[in-house]
Simulated scan of single mutants.
Amino acid sequence: MSYKLVCPHCHSSLRIRTSEGQHIFLRLAYLQCTNEACGWSVRAEFQMTHELSPSGMPNPAVRLPLANAAIRRQAMKSADDQPDLLDQLEMETTSR
């Protein structure tokens, strides 16, 4: 499963042009809208925040808080239960 990033202006997909690691748990990414007429670009941060399950090969330097039950339940939801963000935005746009 992959996550689709969506332009909030034109609802086209965004692509990651480049990214750079800032920390073991933080990556900066520079995104660009794939719609040339829109051309929006943005900087984003992707951060690891909670451990859902322990690693089978733990690194002592990796220390994240264990996710609470609510976060783990959310992570366990099937992808089939959740509409794709792009599809959801398209449905909202057409219903206006």
Rank of each mutant, 00 (worst) to 15 (best):
S2I: 06
S2F: 03
S2D: 09
K4M: 06
L5R: 04
L5N: 05
V6S: 04
C7G: 05
C7W: 03
H9K: 05
H9Y: 05
H9G: 01
H11S: 12
H11V: 05
H11Y: 13
S12N: 14
S13M: 04
L14V: 01
R15W: 01
R17Y: 07
R17H: 09
R17W: 05
S19E: 15
S19R: 11
E20I: 08
E20K: 14
H23M: 04
I24G: 03
F25L: 12
L26H: 02
L26M: 04
R27F: 00
L28E: 14
A29Q: 07
A29W: 01
Y30M: 04
L31G: 02
L31C: 10
Q32W: 01
Q32H: 06
Q32R: 11
Q32Y: 01
C33Q: 06
T34F: 00
N35H: 01
E36L: 03
C38L: 02
G39I: 11
G39E: 12
W40T: 08
S41M: 11
V42H: 06
R43A: 12
R43E: 15
E45C: 05
F46H: 14
F46K: 09
Q47P: 00
M48Q: 12
T49N: 06
H50V: 10
H50R: 12
H50I: 07
S53L: 07
S53F: 14
P54N: 06
G56E: 12
G56D: 13
M57F: 09
M57W: 05
P58I: 06
P58D: 04
N59K: 01
A61D: 15
R63Q: 15
L64T: 10
L64P: 09
L64A: 09
L64G: 07
A67D: 10
A67F: 04
N68P: 05
A70H: 08
I71S: 05
R72G: 03
R72N: 08
R73K: 12
R73P: 00
Q74I: 06
M76N: 13
S78R: 14
D80R: 08
D80F: 05
D81T: 13
Q82C: 09
P83K: 05
P83W: 03
D84C: 05
D84I: 02
L85H: 08
Q88P: 00
Q88S: 11
Q88A: 15
L89Q: 11
E90I: 02
M91W: 07
M91L: 12
T93E: 13
T94E: 05
T94L: 05
R96W: 04
R96A: 10
